[in-house]
C-alpha cells in the first residue's frame, strides 16, 4: 500500500508548487496590466533598455560618443544632431543613449548587492535570537541615521572617485532598508504553521531561512528594489555631478550635466536632455514599483 501511495504523493507535491507559482505569476501580471501607469512605466523602461542594449549599433562609442569635434561644438538641436552637441562637439543623443549603459547596470548591481546583503542581515536578525536581533538592528539604525547620499559622499570622498568605490558606496547606503524590510516580513511569518512544520521535520535554521522564509518575503523586497534602483540612479548622477562618481569622458548623465553647467547661458540643450533621461528612467521605475506593489499585494492598495 505504501508503495502505491508515496509515489503518487510525491508526484503531486512536485507538480503542485510549480502550478501554483505559475498561476500566481499570471495573476500578478494580470493585475499589473490593469494599471495603466505601471504599463507605461514598463514600456518606457523597455525602450530605454533596448536602446541601451543596441547603443553600439546606433552610435559608435569611440568615434561618436568620445571623440571631440571642435567644428561642431555647441550646436543646437537639428536634423543632424537631434538633441544638439556639447561643448566638445559630441552628439548629445548618442551620449545619452550610451549613458544608459553606465547608469542602469551600476544601479542594478548596487541594488542587487544591497538586496542580497541586506536581505541576509534582515533574515538573520528576524530569525535569530532577540539579542542578535537587537544588536543588528541598532547597527542598522545607526546607518539609517545618515542620509544615503551623505553616506555615499563620505565613502567615495574617503576611498577616491572610481567605479568600484561608487559601487561600494551606493550599495552600503542601500543595505539598511532591505535589512529592515526582510526582518519585518520574517518576523511576521516566522511563527506561521508551515515554518513550524519545516522545523518539525527537522530542517535546520539555514534551510528554513533560504527555503521558506526568503521566498515568502520576496514581494516587499521586489517592490523596494524597484524603487531603490530609481534612487540609486539618482545617487550615481548626483555623485558624478559633484565629481565623485563616473569620470569624464564617459557619458554618464550626471557628469554630462556637470560638464554642460558652464554653458547653460548659451546652450540650454546640454543640460536639459541628460536630465530628462534621468527623470524618465526614474519616473518609469517609480511607476513600475508602485504598480508592482499593488499587484503583488492587493491588500496594500489604498
Amino acid at each position: 500500500m505504501n508503495t502505491t501511495i508515496i509515489p503518487s504523493k510525491n508526484q503531486g507535491s512536485e507538480i503542485l508548487p510549480e502550478k501554483k507559482k505559475k498561476s500566481q505569476l499570471v495573476s500578478i501580471w494580470k493585475r499589473l496590466k490593469k494599471n495603466k501607469l505601471a504599463v507605461a512605466g514598463l514600456i518606457i523602461l523597455s525602450f530605454i533598455g533596448l536602446t541601451a542594449a543596441f547603443a553600439n549599433v546606433l552610435f559608435d562609442y569611440n568615434t561618436v560618443v568620445i571623440q571631440q569635434n571642435a567644428a561642431e561644438r555647441l550646436q543646437p538641436p537639428s536634423a543632424k544632431h537631434w538633441l544638439g552637441t556639447d561643448e566638445l562637439g559630441r552628439d548629445i543623443l548618442a551620449r545619452i543613449v550610451h549613458g544608459a549603459r553606465i547608469s542602469i547596470p551600476i544601479a542594478f548591481t548596487t541594488i542587487l548587492i544591497a538586496t542580497v546583503v541586506g536581505g541576509l542581515i534582515g533574515a538573520i536578525s528576524g530569525y535569530g535570537s532577540k539579542r542578535v536581533d537587537n544588536f543588528i538592528m541598532r547597527i542598522m539604525d545607526i546607518f539609517l541615521a545618515i542620509p544615503g547620499i551623505l553616506l555615499s559622499i563620505a565613502i567615495v570622498a574617503a576611498l577616491g572617485p572610481s567605479l568600484r568605490n561608487l559601487l561600494i558606496a551606493i550599495s552600503i547606503a542601500n543595505i539598511p532598508p532591505f535589512a529592515r524590510i526582510v526582518r519585518a516580513s520574517v518576523l511576521s511569518i516566522r511563527n506561521e504553521e508551515f515554518i513550524e512544520a519545516a522545523r518539525a521535520i527537522g530542517a535546520n535554521g539555514v534551510r528554513i531561512i533560504f527555503k521558506h522564509i526568503i521566498p515568502n518575503s520576496m514581494a516587499p523586497v521586489i517592490v523596494q528594489a524597484t524603487l531603490c534602483i530609481a534612487g540609486s540612479i539618482l545617487e550615481i548622477a548626483a555623485l558624478s555631478f559633484i565629481g565623485l562618481g563616473i569620470q569624464p569622458p564617459a557619458p554618464e548623465w550626471g557628469a554630462m550635466l556637470s560638464g554642460g553647467r558652464q554653458y547653460i547661458r548659451y546652450a540650454w540643450w546640454i543640460c536639459a536632455f541628460p536630465g530628462i533621461a534621468i527623470m524618465l528612467t526614474i519616473l518609469s521605475l517609480n511607476l513600475l514599483g508602485d504598480g508592482l506593489r499593488d499587484a503583488l499585494d492587493p491588500k496594500l492598495k489604498n
Partner: peptide, 15 residues
C-alpha cells in the same frame, strides 16, 4: 507630484 519625486533636484535647479 510623480514627476516631482522623479526629478533630480540639481537638474531642476539648472532648468
Amino acid at each position: 507630484a510623480l514627476i516631482g519625486v522623479s526629478m533630480p533636484n540639481f537638474w531642476f535647479g539648472l532648468m
